[in-house]
């Protein structure tokens, strides 16, 4: 495989590193955090730019409202808390004060999905992508590793408009290039293939690459595309790949309802009906466990992507014959 898992890092640290760089390069960037500075890795920014850091306490609604207000006067606020408290808890505040009001707020959300682990389902939000992508004009980004999260953090500062940036807690392979250019809405073709397209986002991108290696050994050439931006969706990249392979698998750490797969299915059903399988959580809450145990139990790993790819290739062949 051309990608290496030798270095492992957490995506939230990529966010912290990107935010610190923004502190130096963008004087108007400010940060707000609701009592999770260490968890979000915002402490370096807080230390370097104390006057531009706002500790809001455990009051997420007020944090989102203050962020909206800070844009009035030209600031670029980055809010930080867990994904659960960044979305579901403050949905109406984001909807009215940020999205509908067109405010330039960056909602940065850590500990998304099952890989939050042992704390259990109260904190493991699996609906956040759906909640955010439904809001008009909201940009939704879910990078795959440390380097990409850092690059995405820096890139969203120069994008005018509300953004939801989702990342996670555990260390995962850091395999994309350091100092990469991050283009919002532009999918990245990590590995070309001809038999099946795997569209993955976030932590599932690495799993998709591992699955592709195993599939190759089984004689299936898988194309792996990193959909780091769920909204706006790179329709051109998805349609081009689906037109080539004529069957697709989506993979994400999120509910099937409202997630990446749902967006891709909408697109394909309108423009290019294609056999599809979805790797996602199927209408269920999570539970306590290690990230690895949970990803396996809920079917969000390379093994399940392999099964889904084999299945969808068979479906394609059945249709073709």
């Amino acid at each position: 495989m051309k990608y290496s898992a030798s270095e492992k890092k957490d995506t939230r640290s990529g966010f912290g590193a990107g935010l610190l760089e923004l502190g130096k390069s963008h004087p108007n960037v400010v940060a707000l955090c609701a009592d999770l500075t260490g968890s979000l890795k915002m402490d370096a920014f807080q230390k370097a730019f104390p006057e531009r850091f706002f500790q809001t306490g455990i009051a997420e609604a007020n944090m989102i409202g203050m962020a909206a207000g800070l844009t009035i006067g030209g600031k670029i606020p980055f809010t930080g808390t867990f994904a659960n408290f960044s979305t579901g808890r403050v949905y109406d505040q984001i909807r009215q004060s940020v999205a509908y009001s067109g405010k330039n707020v960056k909602i940065c959300a850590s500990h998304a999905g099952l890989t939050l682990g042992e704390d259990g389902a109260t904190h493991q939000i699996l609906e956040d992508i759906g909640l955010m992508k439904m809001l008009p004009h909201m940009t939704v980004i879910n990078p795959c590793d440390y380097n990409q999260t850092k690059a995405a953090t820096i890139a969203i500062a120069d994008h005018h408009g509300p953004v939801y940036l989702r990342f996670g807690r555990p260390v995962v392979p850091n395999f994309t290039p350091a100092n990469q250019e991050f283009i919002i809405g532009k999918a990245i073709n990590l590995q070309e293939g001809t038999d099946v397209s795997i569209f993955a986002t976030g932590h599932l991108v690495w799993q998709a690459l591992e699955a592709a290696v195993a599939l190759q050994a089984k004689g299936i050439s898988a194309e792996v595309i990193n959909i780091h931006t769920i909204k706006p969706l790179d329709e051109g990249a998805i349609l081009a790949s689906a037109a080539k392979t004529r069957c697709v698998v989506s993979a994400e750490e999120h509910q099937m309802n409202g997630g990446l797969g749902d967006s891709i299915a909408q697109l394909l059903s309108r423009k290019l009906p294609t056999p599809m399988e979805m790797i996602a959580v199927k209408d269920s809450f999570g539970e306590s466990g290690t990230p690895e145990q949970l990803m396996t139990k809920y079917g969000l790993d390379a093994a399940h992507i392999i099964l889904a790819a084999e299945s969808v290739v068979r479906r394609k062949q059945a249709v073709t014959v």
Binding site: G65, G69, I72, Q93, S97
Partner: peptide, 12 residues
């Protein structure tokens, strides 16, 4: 929501 927004504007 308005007090939080006003407060943010005051901080700016």
């Amino acid at each position: 929501q308005g007090l939080s927004v006003a407060l943010g504007a005051a901080l700016a």
